[in-house]
Simulated assay, not measured.
Amino acid sequence: MPDEAPLVITERSSDGVLLVRLNRPERRNALSTPVLMALVAALNTATADPSVGAVVVTGNETVFAAGADIDELAQASSEDDVESPRFLAWQEIRGFTKPLLAAVEGWCLGAGCELAMCCDIIVAGKDARFGQPETNLAIMPGAGGTVTLPRRIGQQLAMLMVLTGAPITAQDARDCGLIALVTETGQALERALGLATTIAARAPVAIRAAKASIKLATALTEQAHLHREREIYLALLGSADKAEGIRAFKEKRAAVWTGR
């Protein structure tokens, strides 16, 4: 009997980018707990590999991920633990410290939209659709759809998306700040990989620090964030990469980053 297809497929480029493809086309890339755990394993590999500077997660040409696995959802109950393996997998994905990009074509719904929102930059083809339709099943989003979404796009539009279950277009998602870029259909992955390559070539210590500081925007008051930003900035001034960056600028050459 042949081995089952992997739940995610990883491809490592020579430019420091790890591509992670969701690989359940027969289930429209439904995000079962095993899929999330496979994604976590891929991200953990990227964390441990200093040559990986950025990660791109994608689906296929018609669907990024259409939601949670309906069979798994049918077996879930109100007696399940809050800190289940699924919950902990989501926490690990959100805690990934290197740049994480999403390339979205087609449907990006429910848990798929929540996964995209875990990413630092979302690039979508113009025919992509984003939605949180869980209320159609008499439940609600459970992995950030009522937490991250209103922080990204505001309470009014989040209410509209969640309470009606209706998806929005890629352009509407760009206009409201849910995603960063809209491309022609079929070009999201190419654009995301290009961005990831650019980011991976930059000083890793600075990129990780900048990502961490930006993510504090919804966790701290403005004054507390300004204070923390200054602390992170000062720590970077003592890095070997900062010294190399200054030298390279003065010598008019490309910098050679060490990640220290």
Results as ranks from 00 to 15, higher is better:
residue 253 R to A: 04
residue 126 K to H: 05
residue 159 M to T: 14
residue 83 E to F: 10
residue 36 L to F: 02
residue 109 L to W: 04
residue 237 L to Y: 02
residue 45 T to E: 15
residue 44 N to G: 12
residue 173 A to Q: 01
residue 227 H to G: 12
residue 220 L to C: 14
residue 213 S to Y: 00
residue 71 D to E: 12
residue 180 A to K: 12
residue 244 E to Q: 15
residue 19 L to R: 11
residue 186 G to D: 05
residue 203 A to R: 08
residue 232 I to S: 11
residue 153 I to G: 03
residue 186 G to H: 00
residue 255 A to S: 13
residue 247 R to F: 08
residue 27 R to G: 00
residue 241 D to Q: 11
residue 50 P to N: 12
residue 168 I to G: 06
residue 73 L to Q: 05
residue 106 G to W: 00
residue 172 D to C: 10
residue 91 Q to E: 13
residue 75 Q to F: 11
residue 183 T to N: 08
residue 69 D to W: 05
residue 28 R to S: 13
residue 8 V to T: 05
residue 112 G to Y: 08
residue 54 A to N: 02
residue 200 A to S: 13
residue 211 K to F: 09
residue 133 P to L: 02
residue 63 V to R: 02
residue 175 D to A: 09
residue 134 E to L: 03
residue 206 A to D: 13
residue 212 A to W: 12
residue 205 V to E: 07
residue 222 E to H: 13
residue 260 R to Q: 14
residue 103 A to W: 02
residue 134 E to V: 10
residue 12 R to G: 06
residue 213 S to Q: 13
residue 61 E to L: 14
residue 5 A to T: 14
residue 85 P to A: 07
residue 164 T to Q: 02
residue 168 I to P: 06
residue 258 T to Y: 03
residue 105 E to H: 00
residue 148 T to W: 01
residue 181 L to V: 11
residue 96 F to Q: 06
residue 94 R to T: 00
residue 64 F to P: 12
residue 246 I to A: 13
residue 195 L to D: 09
residue 56 V to C: 04
residue 50 P to A: 11
residue 245 G to C: 08
residue 18 L to R: 01
residue 93 I to T: 04
residue 53 G to F: 04
residue 89 A to I: 04
residue 166 A to S: 10
residue 138 A to D: 04
residue 159 M to H: 05
residue 32 S to M: 08
residue 104 V to G: 04
residue 6 P to E: 01
residue 154 G to M: 00
residue 126 K to Q: 13
residue 5 A to I: 01
residue 89 A to S: 06
residue 176 C to V: 07
residue 94 R to L: 03
residue 197 T to I: 02
residue 124 A to K: 01
residue 249 F to M: 15
residue 44 N to S: 12
residue 132 Q to M: 15
residue 231 E to C: 10
residue 94 R to V: 00
residue 158 A to Y: 00
residue 161 M to A: 03
residue 138 A to F: 10
residue 75 Q to R: 15
residue 178 L to K: 07
residue 238 G to E: 15
residue 40 V to H: 08
residue 6 P to R: 02
residue 24 R to P: 05
residue 53 G to T: 01
residue 171 Q to N: 12
residue 100 L to A: 11
residue 47 T to L: 10
residue 223 Q to R: 15
residue 43 L to H: 03
residue 239 S to Q: 11
residue 31 L to R: 03
residue 76 A to W: 09
